[in-house]
Design a protein around this nucleic acid. Structure first.
Lengths: 187, 187, 187, 187
DNA sequence: GATGAATGAGAATTCATTCAT
DNA sequence: GATGAATGAATTCTCATTCAT
């Protein structure tokens, strides 16, 4: 009665979670039925209700994770020159867009709808602030007159890039990366 | 007997349309039920089907309007200097974002979902191309080496701005307008 | 206020009737909507309700006519030899099957469903009796031992033929006509 | 714990099926609503969709059974004299009409409508061919000049008989059986 | 824990019918 | 007579949720 060595609970719950996450992100919340989740997770419909109170609850869990899994301006090296750090952050963001497309898509969705659990939106907003702060500090170090303005400018650019990448209108991320690097004199 | 407070057809259809438009744009298509539309429009459920073949048709109609109401790079004056034209287009776009938030939100929705009515997406894409072409030509006239790249860069920026404005993360459009103007040496 | 020389009422009502008749017979009652009738008759939906209380009422009218329009064993010539009359009746029936296919189909439908207005069924049944009587008398004149039995036998055959013709399994009516004629030594 | 009064799945599905079958056969497909089926089967409306994809699917299932349950010209004994076999087939058909009235009524319905599920109609037609072939062979063995014509003649007769039996206009099947037997000199 | 049969509320849609004009 | 906008009940179907096993 303890809990199997193979920790089935953790496993099953996690499988449900991951499945739901992927489906929510690719099809949307409404368009994802419990049946779909169950089928994709390889469990019965009823079992979901052992781990989550209901569909909404499962969504909340996913949203919380999404907001926590946003890339944070990490990889930061206080010893490195600011240009090096700026380059790292931009790379981090662009790689994130490229490889976590559906997480990013999900968070854009959330912002567009706006209606969802404000606590989730708060987490997302907090993360955005984090990036603004990070860029602002770097631009300060780089002697920009309007460091905050430049930070927002850069983030706006990155958001536009994310949007275009997700909706396939990018002419590719690589050229834009180059453009940004050259704008800020990186590498 | 002049003009009834509730003159028929034109009015009712338009009420349905406007209601649906607003609801689609704020809640999304799937999340908006016919009941919601009917209730908000103050009509019976069945009446919608007098004016539109089905929900999809209503969506299409809305989408068509959305795509037609996209700002096109007009206000173009071949006699005017390219900088003047560039300024006009940027102004046009920014004003659009500010005043047609619903429409812009809707088209962002569509791009994020991607799945819907490919014909509409085509229209939207065509419009995007229009803007790219317009900016590209201006940048050519302005002697930019990579006119096309610059056009895309600018549009990406504007998209990011739109996204942030819609999701309330903008620090306002005005400062960004100034920034863009100064970047391109306008006014 | 009298009634126009072009007797519009009679006309319109008759158009509605004929349209409904054809549609009921080809698509079935449930499958025929008031809208269809109106469109095909070239009138508005509302107008139908001036001439008929409701859809059911229109059906009843059609059914009554159908039952009255059943071919009756007419073309009967008391002077002619019984074989001649037998031939005429068989021809009458077969021609009817061939040319009034959808009336016949309609009456078969009614018999299969059985549930409809018993008064209509009574009319149909009465007509069947008429045929039985007619054939029976002819077979009596032709000295058949079991004239009634033979009459029913022949009618059963004709019904089978009608059924097959309507459902396309006939190998054609012509050969069967020959067969029946030869069976009874006609022509 | 032996066999519950309401053992699940198999039972429920079968109850739905039987209910639908009976209702389809007596009222017709369109005239039978899911609500009717559910009410008559004593289940919720939704449950039907657990076992059948939709109403059409349920119909198909019923039709499949109908077409499979059509009497096939079996009971055939190659050793027996052809007259014996002919007698058996006629008996088989007549017994079928008498005892599987629902099924026969249903297949008549289908033929009259014609529109439905062409695959089912094909099955029914194939079965009809089977009978034609069987009778034809017997008539060949019995030295009929036009064996095929005679086969169709007999089947037409049997179809008429079925029709009349179902719509209650038969004067009973027994006398007709005698008549057919005597026509072919059986027993 | 796990299953899936069963339910019922709600969604989209159709359609006979009414009624103001 | 004639129109067609408007209604509301009914229909098919979906799906989150419950519950007996």
């Amino acid at each position: 009665m303890q809990s199997n060595p193979s920790s089935p609970e953790r496993d099953t719950k996690s499988v449900i979670f991951q499945t739901a996450f992927k489906l929510f992100a690719t099809h949307g919340y409404q368009e994802t039925s419990i049946s779909m989740i169950a089928k994709n997770a390889g469990i019965s419909k009823g079992l979901m209700y052992h781990y989550y109170r209901n569909k909404e609850d499962l969504l909340l869990e996913v949203l919380k994770t999404v907001s926590l899994d946003q890339i944070k301006p990490a990889n930061w090296d206080n010893q490195a020159p600011p240009k090096e750090n700026l380059k790292r952050l931009i790379d981090l963001f662009l790689d994130y867009i490229q490889h976590q497309t559906y997480i990013k898509r999900f968070s854009l969705f959330l912002h567009l709808q706006g209606q969802h659990a404000s606590e989730v939106l708060k987490l997302l907003d907090a993360n955005i602030s984090l990036w603004e702060k990070a860029f602002e500090e770097l631009f300060l170090q780089l002697q920009f007159k309007d460091a905050q303005g430049e930070a927002i400018y850069l983030l706006t650019m990155l958001d536009g890039l994310a949007l275009r990448h997700i909706s396939k209108h990018s002419y590719g991320i690589a050229p834009m990366r180059k453009k940004l690097f050259s704008k800020y004199g990186l590498v």
